[in-house]
C-alpha cells in the first residue's frame, strides 16, 4: 500500500487556513452568533502583586523571592445552570509572569448564555502530551518541556531563598501518568454577588483571576524551603505534592465585569 503523499506544505497551509478563520475575531463577519470571554490573570503572593525580585515570605515564614513563574492552563469548560457544558476547542494557554501579554487572553466562539461554572486543567492532558511536535502555547521551545523523559512542565516556580542551601529553588511540576500524575482540574466558583457569566453576541464578560504563589507552599503538603529546593527533572512525588497544594486554591476568580 502506498502512503498518501499530500505535500507537507499543503497540509500546513490547510491547517493555517483553518486556524486563521478560528482566530479571526476582530473582523467579525456580518452575523455574529457567538460570544467571548476575556481573561486577565494576576499573579500574587497573598495580598501583594507578584514582582520578580521582591522579597516575600511563605505562610510558614520562609523568605523567598521569585525569578520565574509560568504555567499552562488547558481544557477550559463553561457550564450552564441546566448542566450543559461548552468546552473550548484547542484550549491551551501559556501564562508567563515574564510576559505581560500572556496574562490576558480571550476565549472565543462561545454559544451565548449564562454560565455558572468554570473549570480548567493545570497542565497538558496525556493525549496532547504524547502527540509530538506542537505549535503555539505548546511549542516545544516554550521553556515548558522536558527534553528527555519527554513531556510538558505544567508549572514552573523558580526563585531565591536564604533558607535554601544553594540559595535558589527550582520547582518544575509535570507528569501525567500514575504514580506521579500531576494533572489537576480545578472548578472555580464565581465571586459572591455574581450569579453568572453572561456571554452574548454583544457583551464580553471579563474575568479577573488571581494565582497565589503562597498556595504552592501551603496546603496538604506544607513546603519548607530548607527541605525542598528542587523537584526532579521529570515527574516525581515532590511535583505531585506541589500540584495537590496548588490545585486546592491557587486560582480564584477575584472579580467579574459582565460587560456593557
Amino acid at each position: 500500500m502506498l502512503f498518501r503523499t499530500l505535500p507537507a506544505a499543503l497540509a500546513t497551509l490547510l491547517l493555517g487556513a483553518i486556524s486563521l478563520t478560528a482566530c479571526d475575531d476582530d473582523d467579525q463577519p456580518a452575523t455574529v452568533t457567538t460570544g467571548k470571554l476575556n481573561f486577565e490573570l494576576e499573579n500574587v503572593v497573598g495580598a501583594q502583586s507578584l514582582a520578580f525580585g521582591t522579597p516575600y515570605a511563605t505562610l510558614a515564614g520562609d523568605p523567598f523571592s521569585v525569578t520565574k513563574f509560568s504555567y499552562i492552563l488547558s481544557n477550559f469548560k463553561l457550564t450552564k445552570a441546566d448542566g450543559s457544558v461548552w468546552a473550548e476547542p484547542e484550549s491551551y494557554h501559556l501564562i508567563k509572569q515574564s510576559d505581560a501579554g500572556s496574562r490576558n487572553f480571550t476565549i472565543a466562539d462561545i454559544p451565548p448564555g449564562d454560565y455558572t461554572g468554570l473549570t480548567f486543567t493545570i497542565g497538558v492532558d496525556a493525549a496532547r502530551n504524547t502527540a509530538g511536535a506542537q505549535t503555539g502555547a505548546l511549542a516545544q521551545d516554550n521553556d515548558m518541556y522536558w527534553d528527555w523523559n519527554s513531556g510538558y512542565i505544567f508549572l514552573k516556580l523558580e526563585g531565591t531563598s536564604t533558607q535554601s542551601r544553594t540559595g535558589v529553588f527550582t520547582y518544575h511540576v509535570g507528569g501525567f501518568k500514575d504514580p506521579y500524575n500531576s494533572l489537576r482540574t480545578v472548578a472555580l466558583p464565581l465571586p459572591a454577588g455574581v450569579t453568572a457569566l453572561q456571554v452574548s453576541t454583544t457583551k464580553t464578560p471579563e474575568l479577573h483571576l488571581k494565582a497565589d504563589v503562597q498556595r504552592l507552599f501551603a496546603g496538604r503538603y506544607p513546603v519548607r524551603l530548607a527541605q525542598m529546593i528542587t523537584t526532579g527533572h521529570g515527574a516525581d512525588s515532590s511535583a505531585v505534592k506541589l500540584a495537590i497544594n496548588y490545585a486546592a486554591g491557587m486560582f480564584r476568580i477575584d472579580h467579574v465585569h459582565n460587560g456593557d
Partner: peptide, 29 residues
C-alpha cells in the same frame, strides 16, 4: 523510544540528544 521509553513520540525525540550535554550539548532555542 529509547532503551527506557523516556521519549513518547518520534517527533520530539531529537530534543533529547540536542540538549544532552554528553551528546550534542545544545538548546533548542
Amino acid at each position: 523510544l529509547m532503551w527506557d521509553g523516556a521519549v513518547s513520540h518520534i517527533e520530539v525525540l531529537p530534543l533529547a540528544p540536542l540538549s544532552n550535554a554528553q551528546e550534542m550539548g545544545e538548546t533548542l532555542p
